[in-house]
């Protein structure tokens, strides 16, 4: 499980590591990828942060689907997205799906 606000930051930032400390790229490479290597399902608690810019989300989740390491079509079921905001879940699914095309 990853609780973004508790384990990563309350203030998600930009796309790349060069953008700042709490980028989508860092979240993907240092949090999502190692956890997905350990378990088939990964629960991600998205509430508790100030919000997520689309660049952060696209790089973290779209970028995850673009990696060769994971079967992109499985990610939407392996990632259990816990959020009170349905539009956030929809946006992440959109990035996971779009990255496969």
């Amino acid at each position: 499980m990853i609780d973004v606000a508790a384990d990563f930051t309350r203030y998600p930032g930009g796309r790349f590591r060069s953008d700042g400390k709490f980028s989508g790229q860092r979240f993907r490479d240092d949090y999502l990828v190692p956890k997905l290597r350990e378990a088939n399902e990964l629960k991600i608690i998205l509430d508790g942060t100030m919000g997520y810019g689309s660049s952060f989300l696209e790089e973290a989740f779209g970028g995850l689907a673009r990696l060769d390491e994971f079967a992109a079509q499985d990610l939407a079921t392996r990632l259990i997205l816990e959020t009170s905001d349905p539009s956030l879940r929809a946006e992440i699914i959109e990035y996971l799906t779009a990255a496969r095309h």
Binding site: G13, G14, R15, S18, G51, S55, D85
Partner: peptide, 17 residues
């Protein structure tokens, strides 16, 4: 609050990129 935060962060990212 979340929408404003997301707008601010995207504006920062646009500036940096």
């Amino acid at each position: 609050e979340r929408g404003l935060y997301e707008g601010i962060v995207e504006a920062m990212t646009n500036t940096v990129h």
